[in-house]
Amino acid sequence: MIGHRTARRGLIGKWQLAYAAVVADDLFKALADPTRRTILDELTEKSGQTLFEICARLSMRHQLGISRQGVSQHLAVLEAAGLVRTRREGRYKFHDLDTVPLRQITERWPVPDTSEPEESPL
């Protein structure tokens, strides 16, 4: 019984690793583009924006003259990485920010707790 359970856990563990690698690739690809980071900045200020609002913010606040199709493509990349979620509400479609995938970065490369005094070298 125990052996069987361990085997299953091992399988799930391997699958999770492979899955995490795929997710991480999408995540880092999404974050690699400055326009997509700007979209995340704007969604951080206010989550739940229409495509129109995102386009207006990019062009008017950041002087980024990107076509609506271009912005849609950036949003699709962010959505594939799990950083943006879309929601239909009645006749409108909103884009919400989801920063949960970013947690895997600090899980993979933990950040030292800066509130603790740093260990002094011997």
Binding site: K46, Q49, T50, F52, A56, R61
Partner: peptide
């Protein structure tokens, strides 16, 4: 409203539903 007031720099805008099919 589908867009609450946002300071876009040269202009402040907001977008609402006119209940007749338009924003």
């Amino acid at each position: 409203f589908t867009q609450e007031p946002v300071d876009m720099g040269p202009i402040v805008t907001a977008v609402f539903d006119d209940t007749c099919g338009n924003l």
